[in-house]
Nucleic acid binder design. Structure first.
Lengths: 121, 121
DNA sequence: CATAGGCATCGACAGCTGTCAATATCGATG
DNA sequence: CATCGATATTGACAGCTGTCGATGCCTATG
């Protein structure tokens, strides 16, 4: 999933407009976007994303992430898996440690839908 | 809930930065944002939002919305209630009909978090 | 090669979620 | 005031989700 999930027509790509304002989302578009939003719509996973994004180098080791929560290690591992399978986090194993970094294509897919709603009246 | 749910410091409001990049989300911020995202993270509710947003006048009658889905009337009513209670849709009864329109403050709260992620790297 | 530690997977379980049929509510209208 | 039509509420149920303890896998290191 290296390409943006949400395919936009030229009209939809215009600065002012989003598929959500320009015209109703198709069923397929809604399914794709909701998959991404479901992955993000959890307080633990939001904090995981923000920890990775704000960490130096834009990546964080699982060991660091575990320490930021009062949750069991399997639970954090589960949340990281959800984010990874949704395409929001990339995983890289280096030696004993596993590092996660944000996948900006997936973030773009969400932002492309949500951002244009901001300025509209 | 007429005020933005997500309070931003001046630094966070700067054009380039989001709380998610600038520094990790607080637990409270994550809880608030995830509440909004949970309401939005459903294909039916995404389509409902887009139908309301793209409808002329920025509002839509429940009767129109029901016709757009092959779901029972109580199910659509349930989804509208979820969006309304999350603060994403405003409800107004006029005569026999009920009209829904988007609450742009709530949409701003989400966009303020997500939009800045778009340009980053 | 035995051990230790970092991380993932498995199995279980309580709680939440989406859906529907049935029913209630409420305003318009005859 | 009796009825009808537009929405909401209720109750029920299957399926999904977040969490944990136990366990497995893999890599470094002695």
């Amino acid at each position: 999933m290296s390409k943006s999930v949400l395919e936009l027509t030229p009209v939809e790509t215009a600065a002012c407009c989003s598929p959500m304002i320009q015209e109703p989302l198709s069923i397929d578009q809604a399914d794709q976007v909701s998959t991404l939003l479901k992955a993000l719509a959890d307080p633990v996973r939001l904090r995981l994303m923000s920890l990775v994004l704000s960490h130096e180098g834009g990546e964080a080791c699982v060991c660091d992430l575990n320490d930021a929560f009062e949750l069991s290690q399997p639970t954090i591992s589960h949340h990281l898996k959800v984010l990874h399978e949704a395409g929001l986090l990339e995983r890289e194993k280096r030696g004993v440690w596993v590092y996660y970094r944000a996948d900006h294509d997936a973030l773009d897919s969400i932002a492309a839908l949500i951002s244009p709603l901001r300025a509209s009246r």
